[in-house]
C-alpha cells in the first residue's frame, strides 16, 4: 500500500525524490481519513517554503486538511489536473494524485523522514 519509492512524514505526506527535485502528495491513509475529496488548494509557482509550512489544503465534503511541507523547497509545478478532478487524490494518492513538485533546497532533511515500513507501523500505532 505504501510505496517503497517514497519517504513519509508524520503529517501523512509522502515525498518521491528524483535528484534535487521531488513530488509531494498525501498518503493513502490521509485520503481515507478525509473521505471524498472535492477541492484541492495548491500554492503559486516559485513560492518558497520551509519544512513544516502549510502549502495548501485538501478538502472533502465534510472536512478540510492542511498539507505541510515535509522538507524545504521551492514550487516547480502543481498538479493542475486536480482542479477538475480532485477525486484523483482518493483514487490514486501515491501517483496520479500528487500535489506539488518542488526543488529541494536542503536534502539533508530527507533523513528525518520515515521509510514505507516505518510509516505503515506509525499509522497502525496512531489508529490504535
Amino acid at each position: 500500500m505504501y510505496s517503497e519509492k517514497h519517504l513519509y512524514s508524520k503529517e501523512h505526506e509522502w515525498i518521491e525524490v528524483d535528484g534535487d527535485t521531488a513530488k509531494i502528495g498525501i498518503t493513502h491513509h490521509a485520503q481515507e481519513q478525509l473521505g471524498d475529496i472535492v477541492y484541492v488548494d495548491l500554492p503559486e509557482l516559485d513560492s518558497e517554503f520551509v519544512a513544516g509550512d502549510e502549502f495548501g489544503s485538501v478538502e472533502s465534503v465534510k472536512a478540510v486538511a492542511e498539507v505541510f511541507m515535509p522538507v524545504d523547497g521551492e514550487i516547480l509545478a502543481v498538479n493542475e489536473q486536480l482542479e477538475e478532478t480532485p477525486e484523483t487524490v482518493n483514487q490514486d494518492p501515491h501517483a496520479g494524485g500528487w500535489l506539488v513538485k518542488v526543488k529541494l533546497t536542503n536534502t539533508a532533511q530527507l533523513e528525518g523522514l520515515m521509510s514505507h515500513a516505518d510509516y505503515a507501523k506509525f499509522v497502525s500505532e496512531e489508529s490504535n
Partner: peptide, 11 residues
C-alpha cells in the same frame, strides 16, 4: 455512522 460507501456516493 458518518459514512459507509462514501459520502458522495451515498448522497
Amino acid at each position: 455512522p458518518v459514512q459507509y460507501s462514501g459520502l458522495v456516493d451515498e448522497h
